[in-house]
Structures are given as C-alpha cells and as structure tokens.
Amino acid sequence: MNSLQHTAGIIFIVIGLGFDVFGCIGLIRLPDVYNRLQATTKCVTLGTCSILLGAFVLKGLGATGVKAMLAAVFLLLTSPVAAHALARGAHKSGVKLWSKSVVDKYKQDGN
C-alpha cells in the first residue's frame, strides 16, 4: 500500500464521517418529519457511500473493495425508495406539516 492511496482513502472516510454527523445533527434540530427525512436521507446516504468508497480506495480491487462498491450501489438505489415510502406513510397517518410551512398541495388535492 503506497502513501497516496492511504491518504486518499483516509480523506474519503473523514468526509463521509463529517456528512454523517451533519445528517444526525439535522435529525435533532429540524422541526418536523419531512425536514428530518430530507436531512437524513441525503447526508447519511452520501456519507456512508463516501465511507464505502474510502474502503474501496484503501483495499484496492480485492474482495473488500468490490463488496464495498456493491453495498454503495445498493444503498444509492434503496435509500430514496425507503424515504419516499416513509414520507407517504407519515402523510397518510396524519402527521401535520410544520406550523410555518408555506403550502400543502397534497392535502388540497384530497389525499
């Protein structure tokens, strides 16, 4: 393992950890379910994909690297679908939007 590869892998992992922390701070700070879903589904997904990319850079094209890339592709495909289903379920179960929200076209259309 040469030093450039090691440094690049560590940088990817640190960026991913930073985005994970920002997403979780969003989970704490933002006011309602939909905003929390926005923060977590973007930041945590790309943060975890960045960690997996760091593992790929550190380990090269062995068993670890290929499995890491497969897990990253899988996360990028499934995580938005889960977020979409959770948002729809929350709206159908009657969770209100934040009190300062501007508009709710979904409710106006009678769903």
Partner: peptide, 8 residues
C-alpha cells in the same frame, strides 16, 4: 444506514 458504514 449508519451501521453499514460502521461495518465498512
């Protein structure tokens, strides 16, 4: 999702 990163 976080646990996946933990495992990596």
């Amino acid at each position: 999702i976080l646990i996946v990163g933990f495992c990596a």
